[in-house]
Design a binder for these strands. Structure first.
Lengths: 347, 347
DNA sequence: TTGTAAGCGTTATCAG
DNA sequence: CTGATAACGCTTACAA
């Protein structure tokens, strides 16, 4: 819209850094009084207070949070450690954490580890350097974490998403994977299926084994179990192998997660089977693609945001009180989203 | 595997907080010497140094970064401000930022704004409180930001993803949206298409208007342009409307982004048209769903990770040197990912 | 109601 | 090669 480039506006010189004493001098009071006007921790004469506030506004004074933290002994910063922030699940979880933290006056340091233990150690050192007040830890695997374990009784930590062996005494927030498995089992059973393929995920992950267990609890028919991992290709390969051996011995598939489910669907399509007419397919996670494909993928929605939000809210409650959180386990509800990939078995 | 729950291991009492003077006393030297052994900023007798290091290791001393920051006047923390971290694009961008920052010894504070200006102000105050050394700012809209603008000459800021009106003098890293549009235009033209529907995104976004402009540059045929936004439903509605008015006046569609493209595909399917046989469809972003659907969605991949990584690397170079970054614009390359939704027009 | 002074844990300056 | 001392900017006894 502008016909020509505006001339470069000369910038004001960088505002000189102001300290509490500058404000005090300007207002004709002591730094103590300024501090108290700002914090409200002791009564100040209304007239004096007004004068101080006026100066504060005029010069645009903002207390240096570092100095404050140094005296208080805490920073109002928490760490959020995740294996991969670009993974939608962790990104949603991060949003939940950030929301809670922001509401309670905390900032969040993002610690992305890529499953690299050096990097993880680096971030755990933020604790030792007293730069953070608490840590939310998404392990990504149940492998014991000695470094973390050593902190457990001394430092506020919340475990999210995946439980860690030997750390049962931590504040924990996880999805109800078992209930999710049950929902799927019941849904398929109710549709009339009696022969299922259970494409289970990495069984060292408690989340994955819980899903499988829940499914078996609720699905009363015959279950063929094949282990795979969470990747599309692995699922594709596994199912292609089964189909190559002859007509399928199942009318429905519960895949370890949505990605695997997409691999299953592709394998079925490649082999000439229609979904859901010939085979019903269910995933887990309810990633966005589940609702974008046609037919939509029936899946179990994980409360990633709620996990983050709950964990942070719980954890910070204790932090604010100066306590180490006691053992507690928050199991958040999941829900089944029924879409087009599941239907009655063909007679 | 364990037959019964292990007995609760009694936790060691919380390690008493150690200061540099504790270490100094223990090692029989002055705090100054300990500081120098650790920083290497001045030569220390090798014997003394060894003794100090031994004490440091034994008691597990880690310097308090707050106190250090207070004297240095900088924190080695940067802010990353995004409208929505649960959006895959910003999550990938965040990963790039975190990677760069980590490599260069910085930590990242996650500032999620939800487009809320109070929240944005809150995070911009981290700057005023001298808690962060620099800021990476993903605006999400080109609306002028007075608060931000005032900082531009004084404080290291990088603008990413979307340019902001009036802030041309900032360090900027964006995707080459125009080239992306051109790639799409050329691809469809090369396939033989001569009548296109351009479903353009919010035209106040420079990214969206650049995509449209690039497309028009490269696609030589007739273009019908309809404005929509980035949501699936809006695209669905817009295309459904056009199709309801009679047979389509186009053989291909360039949607504002992948989400819109999915809306387009659904609308075409609902109206009985096949993709790509009757109409070719192209999106923008290359979200994961693009590769999961069948047929796969042809799309333009945005280098979200690289944008974050580049912006952070550039910005921190100046921060480390104690300088304000000069105006510079980094335009990162995009690429066309051809999948199943594009084909020759039917004769 | 207000102020003085000590202290938080470092690092930089200046002496020795 | 090493150490005392004064900052950094705030909070909080303790005093008045």
């Amino acid at each position: 819209m502008t016909p020509e480039k505006r001339f470069k506006v000369p910038r004001r010189p960088p505002a000189p850094k102001l300290s509490i004493s500058d404000v005090a001098r300007e207002a004709g009071v002591s730094p103590t009084t300024v501090s108290h006007v700002l914090s409200g921790k002791r009564p100040v004469n209304e007239v004096t207070a007004a004068r101080v506030r006026k100066v504060v506004d005029r010069v645009g004074y903002v207390p240096a949070s570092l100095a404050r933290s140094l005296t208080r002994g805490s920073t109002s910063v928490i760490g959020l450690l995740v294996p991969d922030i670009s993974n939608t699940f962790f990104a949603q979880l991060a949003k939940g954490v950030e929301d809670s933290a922001h509401d309670l006056g905390y900032s969040v340091i993002l610690c992305n580890t890529e499953f690299d233990s050096d990097r993880e150690d680096h971030y755990l050192n933020l604790i030792r350097s007293r730069f953070i007040d608490a840590m939310i830890y998404a392990a990504g695997s149940p492998a014991p974490k000695p470094r973390l374990d050593a902190l457990l009784g001394h430092f506020p930590i919340a475990l999210v998403d995946e439980q860690v062996d030997g750390m049962e005494s931590a504040l924990t927030a996880v999805a109800d994977h078992r209930a999710g498995g049950r929902l799927v089992g019941k849904h398929l059973r109710d549709l009339g299926h009696t022969k299922a393929l259970l494409l289970s995920g990495p069984q060292n992950l408690r989340s994955a084994s819980e899903r499988s267990a829940g499914f078996r609890e609720a699905f009363s028919g015959h279950v063929t179990e094949v282990a795979a991992d969470f990747r599309e290709e692995a699922a594709h390969t596994a199912v292609a192998g089964l189909l190559g051996a002859g007509p399928p011995q199942f009318t429905c598939v519960f895949a370890a997660n949505d990605l695997a489910a997409f691999g299953v669907i592709a394998a079925l399509r490649d082999a000439g089977y229609a979904v859901p007419q010939d085979v019903s397919v269910v995933g887990f996670d309810d990633i966005r693609a589940a609702s974008l494909v046609h037919p939509g993928l029936t899946s179990v929605r994980q409360p990633a945001y709620d996990i983050g939000r709950t964990a942070a809210a719980q954890l910070l409650e204790y932090v604010a009180a100066g306590e180490i959180p006691p053992a507690s386990k928050h199991i958040l509800p999941v829900s089944l989203v029924v879409r087009g990939t599941t239907d009655k078995p063909r007679l």
